[in-house]
């Protein structure tokens, strides 16, 4: 990894006696990064420290190589933030609020007006721009919150639970928008307790639990396609015997077998075993390990 977008060293934070983050060491590359963890895992605390809003009890955090304790203004000039909670004044129109949010990000008045208009169009709120925010639905509010986070064109945007409270359609739209941010050249750190959302939008995952880092790495390395699932018509026993002899690990559930092979391609082993035994199959395909599987496995092993 060249220059990491985010780096923390021995980062700890406590609210009184409650430890929110404990000795967190991270090196996160630019791109779309998912911060996964249950409620209270320390996701929001980590984001607030990265924004310079909280001073860590111990350790250090850097964004673009800038220490968030001593260079918080430089960091904030280059990032955006979509908070989990409400941040929208109900008596302002979407356009006015976005213009203000852009100006707060340091854009001159004329550029702020132009950017506000462009970004409202981008998030699909161009028709609603002159409506007061108090009358917006939850989905529209979430899109407005995302718009204020990117209206000043940051290099990195922190999204704290961006799909919270959204219906399935709204969630889809929000995840689509988040996925597109990467193509705009904006790095994203998105926190969520919904693993599926992270799988859909991110290419790097940080798993937090109880203020500690469980895993941090590329999504692809965590959710490998390394398993074959077969549904059999015939008796599974002969096939299981051959596979076991070939060094595969087989789990049986009725007529379904899940085959893994450490260091070998499970597809080739299954193909050969099927040919040897002449077993008939209904279906056969890869079984990907979901982020949820990884999370549960790592959590279970602790």
């Amino acid at each position: 990894m060249d220059q990491p977008a985010i780096e923390t060293r021995g980062l700890s934070h406590a609210y009184g006696t409650v430890v929110a983050l404990h000795d967190v060491d991270l090196r996160i590359p630019p791109g779309r990064v998912g911060l996964v963890g249950a409620n209270g895992a320390g996701k929001t605390t980590l984001i607030r420290i990265l924004l310079g809003m909280l001073t860590p009890t111990r350790g250090a955090a850097e964004v673009f190589g800038l220490d968030t304790r001593t260079h918080e203004l430089e960091v904030r000039a280059r990032v955006g933030y979509m908070p989990e909670g409400n941040c929208l004044p109900p008596d302002q129109t979407a356009a006015d609020f976005l213009i203000y949010a852009a100006a707060l990000g340091g854009l001159p008045s004329r550029a702020a007006r132009q950017r506000a208009s462009d970004v409202l169009t981008l998030v699909g709120l161009e028709e609603e721009r002159f409506r007061p925010l108090g009358g917006f639905s939850t989905g529209m509010k979430q899109r407005t919150k995302l718009a204020q986070a990117i209206v000043h064109d940051p290099e990195l945007v922190f999204l704290d639970e961006p799909t919270a409270g959204l219906d399935p359609e709204g969630r889809d739209e929000m995840l689509e928008l988040i996925s597109r941010l990467g193509s705009f050249g904006i790095d994203v750190l998105v926190s969520s307790h919904v693993l599926g959302d992270i799988e859909r939008t991110c290419d790097w995952v940080v798993m937090l639990e109880g203020g500690r880092v469980l895993r941090s790495g590329p999504l692809a390395s965590l959710v490998d396609v390394d398993t074959v699932e077969i549904d059999l018509i015939d008796d599974p026993e002969p096939l299981m015997t051959v596979l076991a002899a070939a060094g595969a690990e087989v789990e049986r559930s009725g007529t379904r077998l899940v085959v893994t092979a450490d260091g070998k391609d499970p597809f080739l082993l299954v193909r050969d075993a099927l040919a040897d035994t002449g077993t008939g199959i209904r279906s056969m395909g890869p079984r990907s390990t979901s982020l949820e599987d990884v999370f549960l496995a790592v959590e279970g092993s602790r």
Binding site: G80, Y81, P89, G105
Partner: peptide
Amino acid sequence: YGVLSVYSSRPL
């Protein structure tokens, strides 16, 4: 209305 969190994320 939580607008302080917007200020907190800006160079202010």
